[in-house]
Design a protein around this nucleic acid. Sequence first.
RNA 1: GCCCUUGUAGUAUAGCCCGGUCUAGAAUUCGGCCCUGUCACGGCUGAGACGCGGGUUCAAAUCCCGCCGAGGGCGCCA
Length: 459
Amino acid sequence: MSPPRSGRAAPCRPRGEILLSRPRGREAEGALAGFGRTHDVGDLGASALGREVVVCGWVEDVRRMGSSMAFLTVRDQTGVVQAVARGEACGALAGLTRQSAVSVAGTVKETRARGGGVEVEAARIDVLGRAAGRLPIDPTGRLESGLDNRLNARALDLRSPRTAAVFRLRHRALAAIRGSLSGAGFTEITTPKIIGSASEGGADLFPLEYFGRGAYLAQSPQLYKEQATMGLGRVYEISSFYRAEKSHTGRHLSEFTSVDVEAAFADHEDVMGTLESVVAAAAAAAAPGGAGAPGGGLPRPPPVPFERIAYSRAVDELASEGEAVEFGDDLADAHLRVLGRRHPGFYFITDWPLALKPFYIREGADDPDLSRSFDLQYGHLELSSGGMRLHDPEALRSRLAAQGLDPAGFGGHLASFSWGMPPHSGWGLGLDRLVTVLAGLDNVREAVLYPRDPDRLTP
RNA sequence: GCCCUUGUAGUAUAGCCCGGUCUAGAAUUCGGCCCUGUCACGGCUGAGACGCGGGUUCAAAUCCCGCCGAGGGCGCCA
């Protein structure tokens, strides 16, 4: 984008290379002072043999061999390397604690360490940020700290390769989701998180004061994304949303990340296909990191299409398992666990009773008591729900009233439906839950950097 | 909102059921000393804990009650 600012920067930098990333090769040589890093640890290999390099990272171990020789292992986000300090460089290690931030300047040599590879014969080691002697968690994972302590010290926890792997996986999944949707002609939008009225029913909202007026944190972009289809056709949003539910489970958060999709001139089947593509793309992108995460993640990308199970069939299956569910009952978690046992992996539950669905969901094509709707499950975990929407303003108005909501509170929204609203469909996908599944985690808090739940507001 | 489980050094734990053996144990971390090819280095050594408040008892880490924290489940919800 912008031209290189530093006169020292290499000319003809390949397009797309980030300016602050490592200068490689000859231009890096001789940079032995300060923290003029020349390499990420992961880039040290046979090709660097004999080079003078500067690497920066965090001290994982210090092994002192007498007063004038020590080995330390230094980890950065790309890997771990052993440095050997002798003489003066070793003297600089007095008082050095594990997990301190250091720069190591030295020469790359073949190592005699187990496992082979290279090491850095240190000419100089600078302690750039000293770590306290006793840390609230052990980021090396030798002693696995409890989740509460890890979250309280999340910044340090992030130094743990296991934890870092989860967030790299999340990053790859997000990139794949954006790529999938963008490739399918969806435009990414951002809708307000501060809203004026509790317009959707359903979950409780967080109230807040907005210049002397009452307002709320948005629970979903539902109404805005539907409106946006009128001009942009296919839209999606990936944002945080807020639910003031006092849920104490391993799968609920007060602040969660939702992937929301809405498409004009599409029915529920169309967007189910979109959802399958998105989930498959995310799973494929996540796969390389799955092994590094607890539980190992998914064994391989899931086959599509996902199985479709009509709600009525789910009720029958539950009856055959001795679970009494009346047609029209919502499926409780215990029921979903039974279904999840019978259908491990991804599957849809479709054709829900209309009464169980929000006001904007369209009735069934053949049965007005059913709906053109679906939930995407992974085992017993609900990942997504969506469907075809009502696009006729009169139908929407009467459904609002039927659900006990005041159409007057939806004036602006209803008005937009008289400006040529296309038939449209969409879904919302819980990204944190998807990452939980893809990384093989058992608590959604692990998949969120700084999770918010009814009992946790910090850090 | 309801229910269950659980709180021991910085971390992760043993001990609790069945009160006295606990002056609370092992590991790791941290401090000191020794060690020039280690690799979770090793050796010697030191420091460090029963969540808080009541109660029962001759005696409480252990049993009871309350509070606080944590984990899970139900409900709600995605």
